[in-house]
Amino acid sequence: MSKRLDPKPRRRLSGSYFWPTVLAVALHLAVFVFSLIKLPENDETPDSSSIVQATLVSNETQTDVAQQVSEQQEAANAKEEAPQPAPTPEPDESPSELEQAVIDQAEDMAAREEERALEQAEADARADAERRAEQAKREAEEAAERKAEREQQRAEEEAVEKVAEEKRQQEAEAQRKKEAAEEAAAAKAAEKEREQEAEAQRKKEAAEDAAAAKAAEKEREQEAEEQRKQEAAMQRQLEGEKEAAAKARQAEKAANGFIAIVRRAVEQAWLIPAGASDSMSATLSVRLGPSGEVLAVTVVTTSGDNSFDRSAVQAVEQAAPFIELRDLPAAQQSELRQFNLRFTPGDVR
């Protein structure tokens, strides 16, 4: 019975493992795929370069090549710096307020710059006319003016630089913020992922635990079953031993019963010859057939008195057949098919 029951739980067990495993694998795959899908978005970096280019536009107006070169270099540097920031995980379509402010400021400044450039051109034309008039004097003034111009240029440059610096700082700040946001988002995503993973893990683990628990339960049950079986087997064995002992006792009892029957029957059948003395004793060997019939009776030890010996032989023959032999267990039967009888007239009825 137990053997037939045995394969079933195993089949159930394998079935229960299958779906959780599939689910877990699928979950993992999904998480992986999601993570893959998100990563390319990160590559699409935001167009912070456009801000930098706006700066470059203003620079093109600069006459000083060296300045342009340096500006270009700076721009290039800036440009180089620009794409470096970490990718934004979450694409923010509209620029943030900060960015907008930066952009607006930049546009304003560009407009004012343009205005000033126009005014200067007018002044220049006037100065040209005046210069011709006032050549000599202006030569010195020009030098001073160039100096002032240089100073102003320098101031402008400084201002530009300051703006650029501010812009850079703002950009850096924005970048930091963006990065922070991105990092936060990433962390959040990572957290979420972790959570998901953890959840998946938990679920998986739960599933596994459940499965394991189930399996353990199964195992316990099996063990319990095994235990029960063993105990049952032991019980059976004990019972078997008990039964064997009982059987042995029964057999002994049966044998003793048979011996008692033989004794009683023979004593009842024994007609002690007149004149037999108490000191007389004869021992017979009796061999029985399977049905308790007497096959042979032989005098093993004679009493010295033929009639006494014969009385003993006759007692056995008269008491026979000992059909009770057939009621005995087989082992006892064969054992009790041969026995001795000692006749001693100690107690005459």
């Binding site: 011996i259 033989v262 009842q268 041969q338 001795n340 009888l341 000692r342 001693t344 007239p345």
Partner: peptide
């Protein structure tokens, strides 16, 4: 010898005459 050694003691009998 165990089977051969089984000796049943017959100590009682009748002293009545032989039929």
């Amino acid at each position: 010898t165990a089977s051969a050694d089984l000796t049943i003691e017959i100590t009682r009998g009748s002293d009545s005459a032989l039929p």
